[in-house]
Amino acid sequence: MRRIGTLLRTTYVLVVFGFIFLPVVVLIVFSFQDGAVSVPPLRGLSLRWYGELFADGRMMAALRNSVLVAVVSAIICTVLGFIAAYGLARYRPRGAAALRALLIAPLGVSYLVIGLGLSLGFSELGIGRSLMLVIIGHVVINLPLAFAILLSQMNEDQEQIERAARDLGAGEFHVITKVTVPMLLPGILAAFLLSFTLSWDEFVIALLLTRFDVTLPVEIWSALRTGLNPKTNAAGTIVFVLSVSLLFVTYWISRRRIGGQRR
């Protein structure tokens, strides 16, 4: 009986893992397909599609745009999120609950509606679509997360250390740059990397707010219209590998922090 139970459970877990990994495996395997269509049977392995991808000027430009948008929006998210979380955690202002609710609010709204709002608003003001607007939109959607992560990392022990620094004569600016930021570095990096990853992958807002200079997900989207193509698999694989590497860096940083606390 017991062994049947274990067998059933193991099978179930394996089936779920199979379901979860099926599209990823198909994506990666067929990016190395030698033939021109990304469906079975697999005809020979080659790096041909990666070569074509790197030779594709539009894709490469889109890749650069995506990295630019992600870096700039993640920096803005982290900085704004950090000072807001600092203000809230250290000064406990009256109305803190309302403040927090307001800053978190964009999480509850579909990206499509946020993108539509920004696109309507900017065109009303006569501002044309550009990567700059995508950066603005990505800060809107990722600021709540950066803020929430940083707020969760702030505690009263840090406050004691900051007080000690102040008693020793450090000014407010020095307290923040020399004491608070180094103490919170893992959280800051986590907020930055998460904002980066989510921005770099975002599609709908980027679609609504760009015209000629597009980001990678938008370029992949237009490539899809011409049919299933191993080059798209190659692009998808690269996006996946980069995102997962960032995820592991984040995880590694957060583990180091836990180790550091134990000491």
Binding site: I20, F21, P23, V24, V26, L27, F30, S38, V39, T197, D201, E202, F203, L216, P217, I220, W221, L224, L228, T232, N233, A235, G236, V239, F240, S243, V244, L247
Partner: peptide, 16 residues
């Protein structure tokens, strides 16, 4: 882990 594939690409992979 597959959460971190690009959203557009993930749907496209299901198409394959």
């Amino acid at each position: 882990l597959p959460f971190w594939t690009s959203y557009v690409v993930r749907s496209y992979s299901w198409l394959l």
